[in-house]
Amino acid sequence: MEAYLFYLLAAVTVIGTVLAITEKHPVHAIVYLVSSFFSLAAIFFLLAAPLIAMFEVIIYAGAVMVLFMFVIMMLDVGRSGDGLRPGLRQWLPAMLLAGVILALLGMMLAHGGWPAPGAGAAATLRDFSLTLFRQHGVAIEIISLQLLFAVVGALYFGKRRGP
């Protein structure tokens, strides 16, 4: 049952992403992408990572995509963006390259050399918190300072300077 759910969600994710990257209007692309991220969040939940699933919905599908939407609406990109739509000339080489990457990945996966079978039990929320604060304490410091400087940078570039 859960396996079928996984494949269903995987299909939704891939289709949503394909529609997002072929859509010429950025607003529609964002909406497709949000639906793709929702099903990805459900996949994270199935893979025993409920916290990551929650954050995927809150941060990605919520905050980041809303930020995109906000900027697109504010700058009114979609209307003037028609002329920028890539034609077949852009699509063909790009698809070729992406196809090569996909083929290489597929070949490597088919080639075997699999990681040893791991533990059966999934990491719990308790494990997650312990790992986060006991082993990767400094990562929190780095990332929090980075988020602070994202604010600093955004303010610096957003400030209207007087004469």
């Binding site: 990562a139 780095i142 300072l145 980075q146 600093v152 940078g153 303010l155």
Partner: peptide, 30 residues
Amino acid sequence: GEEYPATILFTTFGMTALASATTLLSLFLG
């Protein structure tokens, strides 16, 4: 603006974190 010297310090912070990292996570984040 005071952002400039502060950002230089932050950049150095990242480099220093990378220099002393023992996990792939702190290495990448640095």
